[in-house]
Amino acid sequence: MSTPFDGEAYAARIAALAATGKDMHGEANFVAALVEPGARILDAGCGTGRVGARLAELGFDVAGADVDVSMLAVARRIPGVRWYLADLAELDLSTTPDAAPFDLVVAAGNVFPFLAPGTGERVLQRLAAHLRPDGLLVSGFGLDRAHLPEPAAIVPIEDYDAWCAAAGLSSVDRRGTWDGEDWTPEGGYAVSVHRRRS
């Protein structure tokens, strides 16, 4: 996954948004409502660690993975989370302290539109492999140019759903925002919840 910002610049942008009073924890709050306290969560494509850090603050057992060295350098300043440098298309935590399956994997922040072309299905297979049976995968990303930064690719939601199905994931819910608003195809953003079939 590549990004249009280096880690320091991205962190500064997020900090500036937070300073305006904007709630920066919508993704973490959405995820926290789906699992039991203390659940194991993987923040896939964690970037600078904002979502994973908040989930750890809420008492979850969190690991994060990202391929961007500069993003991960910022994340690693945050205590209480295990951070891994990894390409999601090749993700394998079987030889790490996080070999046990996760209760939930979250991919927030337009992870899928920033993947290397042609790797979406493989990434979903690798994420599903890190879930326990009946575990949840939650992702959120923009569906049109108005909801994506220019370098990001547009990923049709039908393609995403097909990749999920091929990875053994069944649809549970779809929302239009991390605040839980109803989803419509015209809304331009989708937060999708899928479950690993047991």
Rank of each mutant, 00 (worst) to 15 (best):
A39P: 12
D98G: 09
W178A: 06
D179E: 12
V123K: 05
E57W: 00
E158A: 15
D61F: 00
P37M: 04
E8S: 13
P149T: 10
A16R: 15
K22S: 01
E57I: 01
R174V: 15
I78Y: 05
R50C: 00
W83N: 06
G47P: 10
A75V: 01
L131N: 13
A65N: 07
F114C: 12
G140K: 07
V31M: 00
E36W: 00
G135D: 04
V81C: 12
A166C: 05
W183D: 10
P133I: 06
T119W: 01
G109V: 04
L58Y: 08
V31T: 12
G45V: 04
A53P: 11
G109A: 06
E90S: 14
R195P: 09
F112W: 01
L136W: 03
L55F: 07
L137E: 10
Y160I: 00
A89Q: 04
V155K: 15
D68N: 15
I41C: 11
R54D: 09
P117C: 00
R197M: 13
A9H: 08
M71F: 14
I41A: 12
R196W: 02
M24C: 02
V172T: 11
A108Y: 03
R82N: 01
E158W: 03
L17W: 08
H25S: 11
S192K: 12
N29H: 15
R145C: 01
L88G: 11
A16Q: 14
A65E: 02
A53G: 15
G120Q: 03
L91F: 10
V155D: 01
L169V: 13
A152M: 06
F102S: 09
F112M: 13
F60Y: 15
R122F: 02
P97K: 05
V155A: 08
